[in-house]
């Protein structure tokens, strides 16, 4: 199970890579492996305002529909359109080509609420919750 040490993680298994005032967001390797084959992604709209802890995307595997929660508040400034035709990129490269969106943060202090890799690894080891 890959848990890179340069990312931050939410309890709901999203990851965040901070780039200046932007947060690149995706779902963790653990999350994609639990979901199984991903067949559909509903991306947020460019320019939409998102709120930390609220649904901003939906990822569907063959069997399950999963809400993806925004780890921080802000505005969507980029979405990964490539997932429309190739949602399996989330399975293949959850931290790379499987990124979901970039959020321009309105309150970067929210990053302090997220976990580092060690804390997230502990959560996964306890069964994911």
């Amino acid at each position: 199970m890959l848990i890179p040490n340069n990312l931050k993680y939410s309890k709901e298994h999203e990851w965040v890579r901070v780039e200046g005032n932007n947060a690149v967001v995706g779902i963790s390797d653990y999350a994609q492996s639990q979901l199984g084959d991903i067949v559909f992604v509903e991306l947020p709209e460019l320019g939409a305002t998102v709120t930390a802890g609220k649904r901003f995307s939906v990822v569907e595997s063959v069997k399950a529909v999963s809400d993806i929660f925004s780890p921080v508040s802000g505005k969507i400034v980029a979405v990964n359109d490539g997932l429309n035709d190739a949602p399996e990129k989330i399975n293949q490269a959850p931290y790379g080509e499987g990124w979901i969106a970039v959020i321009e943060m309105s309150d970067s202090s929210q990053l302090a609420e997220l976990m580092d890799d060690t804390a997230y690894a502990d959560q996964v080891a306890k069964g994911g919750h």
């Binding site: 199984g36 084959d37 067949v39 595997s61 063959v62 069997k63």
Partner: peptide
């Protein structure tokens, strides 16, 4: 078992 290698 719901899956082994993967549903697809």
């Amino acid at each position: 078992p719901v899956q082994y290698a993967g549903i697809l």
